[in-house]
Nucleic acid binder design. Structure first.
Lengths: 305, 305
DNA sequence: TAAAAATACTCCATAGGTATTTTAT
DNA sequence: ATAAAATACCTATGGAGTATTTTTA
């Protein structure tokens, strides 16, 4: 690996056209400079300058190799100084580090509260609401450092790490005047053929679309028509159901927070629960992000247990 | 100055998330790696990684400063490797070094011939014809490494070095049916009021425009109308004169080579000679260029003397 | 002969290695 | 208790200095 200090000496020699003068400028002895250039030349396996003591007006000349190296050396030195300055600045910067946590519309507020207060020593956690099912995308494209998301039990997200924080049952959102609304809970068989809100996720990770369609269904109780387009907010989802366009499947956490007189939620007893967890990029090595994630997991699992 | 070797170690630690594993990969001992990172951190005055031995799944974390340095370090290492490879290639490249020598249209062929055969050991000299008066520009913008050019005696060219090779008298180009064409030579007084070809050079170095206008003139024999536009070639200059648009001043070297039945050249006895010389950038440190220039000067002055 | 760079030789700073301790889980 | 990083300590490489020689214009 090239030694930037030697490159700097090489530049000095070329600039001054003299080992003696360059050595004086560099505050080292002339022999040390000679040896330094020799060291660089030895590493590169070629001569960089032609020592020309005949003509003091001409001085030291640059070889073809030296002429090639010179601009690169200047660029490298400048880049190194920039890198050093930036690193120093990043370290001493008084501004707090900001970590963004994305969450989907159905996220329980308690979870979000806990997440927002998990920022430690100089770290501020900012929440960003994502569209349904955009959590993975947000992590990958960097628009969120962390994400609170719902996912099928045991599911994996490519390039991501998932830490399960809680589980919630799935519920069916139904119009209040729907025959099934009278029951305390429902089964998939009851929902056979019911039109259902399109959850989107066609291009998302495997299993996510099926989660909100309640698939797979028993053979005797097939899924009804899937009615699109997908909704971006909880509000839209409820409006869809209230308008008798169809039912929707969501988590029990949603009706805890959001209520409407014309829509009821009924637990679907024969569907698995949904995992509610924290996602982050598998390759993320940032101390602030990882520590915040740990703090969130610790805090939420503690309060949950 | 940053040590690229240490940056490479820093990258390895971040990549592997472990000092122990990184040290193994780098073929050094773990304490040597610890000390190396400590050295880098000491130089930068800040921590780059957080040693986290609690959780082996998490491993070493990157601080904000480290996150800033990481991409810069990768770029620096890549740039250094590129510079090294390029320099090596430039040194071992079998292709001959090409040096371009620019010349203006009036340059004596003997001079150009001598210049073209002055390339020594692996250096090829290529001639590039320049427009009148563009020699300085060509040197500065790098389109020519050397230039053969005419200039006022004792003139200087900014950022350039001029080596005088010869002197040539100035001549007036006149139509063959011009009254002065009958004389063997002319004086400025004879040329009073004659329309003259615009030599251009308005934005060129001082003294160059005046050279081809024959300025300063005696008060009693003022210059005539300057007729533009400037001509790019000797051919155009002769055509201008043959068409009775006006006279032109050039050097005695031009009619030596270029003759036309309807145009004659007459020496202007009371104008200084013009210097014919080799120009190159003052800051040029390339051995090939300087040696070729020396060879040219030596060869041309030898044959001229 | 005078300059500039290379070489000879010495010294010591420090990078790296081994052994060990510390630290956190 | 274990595994990982830090620390202690030693060694030796090699970079830098002084003195001198070589080179060439």
């Amino acid at each position: 690996m090239l030694d930037l200090e030697l490159l700097r000496r090489f530049v000095a020699v070329v600039d001054t056209r003299s080992f003696t003068i360059a050595a004086r400028e560099l505050r080292i002895s002339q022999p040390a400079l000679s040896q330094g250039i020799a060291r660089l030349e030895r590493e590169l396996g070629c001569r960089l300058v032609e020592r020309n003591r005949r003509d003091p007006s001409t001085g030291v000349l640059v070889t073809a190799a030296g002429a090639t190296l010179l601009p690169e050396a200047l660029a490298l030195i400048a880049a190194a100084e920039r890198a050093e300055a930036r690193t120093r600045r990043a370290a001493s910067s008084p501004r707090r580090q900001v970590i963004t946590i994305g969450f989907s519309p159905g996220t329980p507020p308690a979870l979000l509260d806990a997440a927002l207060t998990s920022g430690a020593d100089g770290i501020e956690v900012v929440a960003v609401q994502l569209a349904w099912g955009r959590e993975h995308e947000a992590l990958v494209d960097g628009s969120a450092d962390l994400a609170l998301l719902q996912y099928p039990l045991g599911a994996e997200l490519p390039q991501c790490v998932l830490r399960e924080l809680a589980r919630v049952d799935r519920v069916a959102l139904l119009p209040v005047d729907h025959p099934l609304a009278a029951r305390p809970e429902v089964r998939l068989a009851d929902l056979a053929g019911e039109p259902i809100l399109d959850p989107g996720f066609e291009d998302g990770p495997v299993g996510f679309r099926e989660l909100w369609l309640g698939l797979p269904r028993p053979e005797a109780a097939p899924i009804g028509r899937v009615v699109g387009p997908p909704k971006a907010t909880v509000d839209e989802m409820y409006a869809f159901v209230a308008a008798h366009r169809g039912m929707a499947i969501t988590t029990a956490a949603v009706p805890d927070v959001y209520q409407r007189g014309d829509v009821v939620a009924r637990r679907i007893v024969d569907l698995d629960a949904v995992a509610l967890g924290l996602g982050l990029l598998a390759g993320d090595r940032r101390a602030g992000v990882l520590r915040t994630a740990s703090a969130m997991v610790e805090r939420i699992t503690a309060q949950g247990g």
